[in-house]
Simulated scan of single mutants.
Amino acid sequence: MRLRRILERFRRFIGRDARDAPGAGSRDACSFIIDPFTDNWEEDEKNGQSVSVSTIRKACQRMGEATTKRDLLGVIACEVGIFDLHDLEVMNARFKRKVADLPENYRDRLLESVREEIFGAHHRLILLSRNGGGPELDAPPNPALRAYCAMVAEACAEKAREKDPRYLYLKYLLSAFTMFVMEEPAHPVGTPFPGGQIVDEWEGTYLCPVRDKANDVAFALCPYCPAVQSKEPTYPEMRARRYERRKRECLANYWTNYKG
């Protein structure tokens, strides 16, 4: 299976060793992070009504036609308005169930990032849509937006064959806000991957250890994410090493160009 082969590549690429801790393995953890479409849980009880595929397709078309980030923000805010706090809590609870068998230390750090991904993104979306933002919202969104919206429409249509795509759609809406309005990674800086590497930021560039490893996962966020594939490991301690390396480079440049 293509996804399994890709996840095996992840496992070899990001793991400090090849051994899985007790419980769910690194392959499962990677799948939970990169593939929002994967969901084997029974449908939760919910207060809101289901969202039809036709409604999602129309909204995706409007998002894809947005000429500024402000226009895009307006469409996303309108669509997110059909959801409430209960829906966010259900999303978070469903993810907690999916990762229940992961090692506790890793699971807790991952859940912290996921809470920011859900509740933090929603909070910022509401605030920005209410206060109007600044002139930066008049800039056009990344051209990848159209392809992203087409992917979302197809993913939700595929999900609707099995169950209500309501929560998958909400996930994609929040990610659209984060990636195309805020121009930040879908997964917050600090999101941990099995083996110890994280989503990181360095000198204004977002770094991801698996950015280019998920292009073959049909409904993944990775191909549309503003993060770039890291060229070196992104363990948390690497930030201090990058700083020291940059300091040495600056000193070398100083002595070469100013002190002869």
Rank of each mutant, 00 (worst) to 15 (best):
L170F: 06
C78N: 12
T55R: 06
P192C: 02
M182H: 13
A93N: 08
M151W: 09
Y148K: 11
H123Y: 15
A21R: 09
A160I: 04
D200T: 01
K98R: 07
P140V: 08
F83A: 04
P22D: 11
L3G: 06
V189P: 03
S129Y: 08
D164W: 06
A24I: 07
M238S: 03
G195K: 14
K58Y: 04
D87Q: 03
W202H: 10
P22C: 10
A139L: 12
S52W: 03
N215R: 13
K69L: 14
A18F: 12
Q229M: 06
R19T: 07
V53W: 04
A218W: 00
E89S: 14
E201G: 01
C78A: 12
L102E: 08
C30E: 07
R62I: 01
T234E: 02
D87L: 07
I82R: 11
D28H: 14
A157M: 06
A214T: 03
D71Q: 15
P223D: 04
V51P: 12
A155I: 08
N40S: 07
I198P: 00
G195H: 04
G25K: 08
R94Q: 13
L102S: 06
P103H: 15
S54I: 04
S50H: 08
E79P: 04
Q49G: 14
K171Y: 14
T38F: 15
A93L: 12
G133T: 05
T38E: 15
A157P: 02
E203F: 05
E89L: 08
R248E: 06
V80L: 03
E65D: 13
L173D: 01
S31D: 12
N215H: 11
I14C: 15
N47G: 07
Y169W: 15
R107P: 04
E89W: 13
P135Q: 14
G74Q: 07
Y258C: 01
D216G: 05
P236D: 00
A59S: 09
R16L: 15
I14A: 12
R161H: 13
D101V: 09
V114H: 13
P188C: 08
K163D: 14
A160P: 07
E42D: 13
E117S: 15
F193R: 05
